[in-house]
Amino acid sequence: MRGVLGHFKELDGAVEAIEELKTSRLGDVTVFTPTPRHEFEHAVQPPRSPVRMYMLFGGLAGCMFGYWIAIWSSNYWPLVVGGKAFGSWIPYTIFGFEVFVLVGALSTVAGLFIHARIPRLTMTVGYDPRFSHGDYGVWVECAPDKAASAEALLKKHGAVEVRGER
């Protein structure tokens, strides 16, 4: 992995740099920001996060398990309570719901980890501790022959520091 890292103090400078990098097609862009900003989302135009599907399928699986464990064990160890059916689906909705929430939420977190690619053992290239503090970073992954153009572009938009990394 080789590229150029631009370090910005101002939000609009970083956003303008990303917009121009997207049109000039110098390379893949990674943005570092201390807090989520809609301006970056509009500039990067990323695909929709698939994390919601984890909630859907995890939740459905959990719901089915919640009903199943209650109904199966009631039939396996039958106790008549108040002359009611062994498998009473109305009270068992509590189990269906609770396990829906439990498995759905944990699946969502798993989805977050998978798609955000965490846990990460190393910070890899292109990260600077200042990006969690208050500054913005734009990492352009590009071939050596395009590095000079990328550096010039980043500086033009107000990058206070530009460096090549590999």
């Binding site: 920001t33 994390v51 969502t108 980890f113 955000a116 990460r120």
Partner: peptide
Amino acid sequence: FGWRNTEREWRHFARAYLFLAAVSTP
């Protein structure tokens, strides 16, 4: 977990957080 503050991480984080909030409400 090696969080790096990338736009990608924040995008999935925001979506996951929204859905966690959505199921925590009921």
